[in-house]
Nucleic acid binder design. Structure first.
Lengths: 351, 351
DNA sequence: ACATGGATGGAAACCGGTTCCCGAAACGGA
DNA sequence: TCCGTTTCGGGAACCGGTTTCCATCCATGT
């Protein structure tokens, strides 16, 4: 086995230097670019680099202050279509701006989240983007506030996406999309079709995203002078299974309704299946609407009427504002609009 | 504004040391854990650490040889449900094994892929997992082979998931799932229902995953002594839109078929919508089957008969084999089985 | 022929950690 | 009381890069 020379592990800049018969500084300068190096030495160095298949250690460069900046994206579960879309946006924009992108799923575990943020601080990440609603408790605020301060003092930045805002003065960038407004518009559309008993398949009662959508549901009713029955407000989570279970329960309980509004498209998908299983046809027997406008929504049958949320754009925006923040620009708070996408799952009532 | 003291940026281990009145080595030892340190100094150091909110720089630790290992996951698009599932598995297993996990979408661009792998080599990633089929050309083999060698010589490891194998002797771990077998079983099931003209909505003609599934389609026919009509083999890609377009085209062309097998569930979803738009009912008028068993498959109407691929498990396995590889264990090649999931979208023909 | 200065490239300090090597203090036993 | 062991902690080298500072060398201008 007469291998060329060094196959045992990575080679250092000094290996390259000695092979090219120059000093380490010279190699660094050749690779660095701008410093004047005679073309003869440059050639020798480049040949050595090629022969050794040398790549400078990124960590060492980073510690010397010339590394590739990094950015972290923390979400609950990459499997959810809407957050996957957002992850895509984050990732694209991050690489476009020359940043590396770390992702981490917390599986909904707060300890996990804390750990990860700490880790990112140690990595000297340029920004940490936290996404997904949460319960807006005092404990949450304090914990998140601590993260924000801690990151800020390390020259980094916390970005909250669709998460409860902290008090004023926290060094945080907040980017939200309008849950209440979207739900309002959607439910108004449903009501305009003549529906009066609209079942709401909500999320966790203390989850801010769920709350926002629920508020929109209520507000739309009240704007028409209607007071929705409390029994039509159901709570679960944002999964497909939750929608399925809730819907089946509602059917079994004999709840009286002519339309269903689900807190997310995933929930709507589960609900739709449950309706089908019960022999009901949408929208002939029952109307159904979702929220998020995930790509799959239009492949459900009937195509789902829903609220479009610009998730990918949201991700890109999060990165841009986090990275492009200047000393003059204060802590930003952006609110992105949403709009109803009318498809085939909501029909007018006969009445 | 009487801030405590140092809010201007990260503090170093020497800051902590001087504040605690000890040397940097001592701080390192206290934080490191096992070295004997008197409890008095330990307390002083810990207090300084707390007051400064100090976290050791992970990059510096890494260069000193005690860093958190990293692992990279490279895919085409995180938005695809099947690969998102896999990413989830990878990410879970990576953090379980104490690794950081970088993800990168290549957007199908080979240059992007190359660049990223190079970057990961610079980061001294413990392993790079490349996922998704590709065209199995000589150029592909050489390029990938180079990546593998280059990573291996840096002490890292290339893992190919559902990708064309390289020749023997390449320092690569390959994990595949059985595309041909799954498609064979699925199409056999469709044929067993009496269908004789089965439309195949395939992927790119040179894409190995697509080819495998197509081979299964053909093999299942031939096992029954049937020779499928070439005109029933359509090619597109693995997106929802491709399925929609292909299906609409087939309908417009007046192709004669009683069942449709799509190369992925996404394609099937698009096809289903096209069928609905044409006023056809599944499975009464046409039977339909997919491949991948993405979570959404059972929420389509009718629930989609498909082939289950253990994507999440695949991701976990990729990480485990990549990291757990010992010097004795040679380059591994794993093939995971798949199985048909019978739901409601395939029915027997009347004939 | 000699001073001048730009082009090159080496030595050493630095980035922020860890760890080896050693000396000093404290402690125990004879 | 004296000596041998621990226990503890500081100094310095090291990890793999970059960059500052400085010493040459060679080509000019006069």
């Amino acid at each position: 086995m007469t291998r060329k020379s060094e196959d045992a592990g990575r080679s250092t800049i000094r290996d390259v230097a000695s092979r090219a018969g120059v000093s380490a500084s010279t190699v660094s300068r050749v690779l660095g670019g701008v410093y004047p190096v005679s073309s003869a030495t440059r050639t020798r160095v480049m040949r050595a680099v090629r022969e050794l298949d040398y790549v400078a250690d990124a960590r060492a460069k980073a510690v010397a202050g010339v590394g590739t900046p990094t950015l972290a994206f923390v979400l609950e579960d990459i499997t959810g279509p809407s957050f996957a879309l957002m992850a895509h946006g984050v990732e694209r924009e991050a690489t476009r701006l020359g940043h590396l992108c770390l992702v981490c799923s917390t599986e909904g575990d707060v300890r996990h989240e804390l750990e990860f943020v700490e880790m990112m601080r140690a990595q000297r990440a340029a920004a940490v983007i936290l996404v997904g609603g949460a319960a807006d408790t005092a404990e949450y605020r304090e914990r998140t506030r601590r993260m924000a301060d801690s990151l800020a003092s390390a020259g980094s930045r916390l970005v909250l996406c669709g998460r409860p805002t902290l008090g004023p003065g926290a060094p945080v960038t907040v980017i939200e999309y309008d849950n209440e407004g979207g739900a309002y518009a959607l439910v108004a559309h449903v009501l305009a079709q003549g529906h009066r008993r609209v079942l709401f398949l909500g999320g966790k009662a203390d989850h801010t995203t769920a709350q926002g959508r629920e508020r929109g549901y209520l507000a739309a009713h009240r704007a028409r002078g209607l007071e929705p029955e409390p029994e039509l407000l159901l709570h679960g989570d944002f999964t497909r299974d939750s929608g399925h279970r809730l819907m089946r329960g509602a059917l079994k309980d004999g709840l009286d309704f002519t339309a269903v509004v689900a807190a997310t498209d995933m929930v709507a998908a589960g609900a739709l299946t449950a309706l089908h299983e019960a022999g009901l046809e949408v929208p002939r027997d029952v109307s159904l609407a979702g929220y998020d406008d995930i790509p799959f929504a239009r492949d459900l049958h009937p195509a789902l009427t829903t609220v479009h949320v610009p998730y990918e754009e949201l991700g890109r925006l999060a990165v841009r504002t986090a990275l492009g923040r200047t000393a003059e620009a204060p802590d930003e708070h952006l609110l992105l609009g949403t709009h109803v996408v009318v498809r085939d799952s909501v029909a007018a009532t006969g009445s």
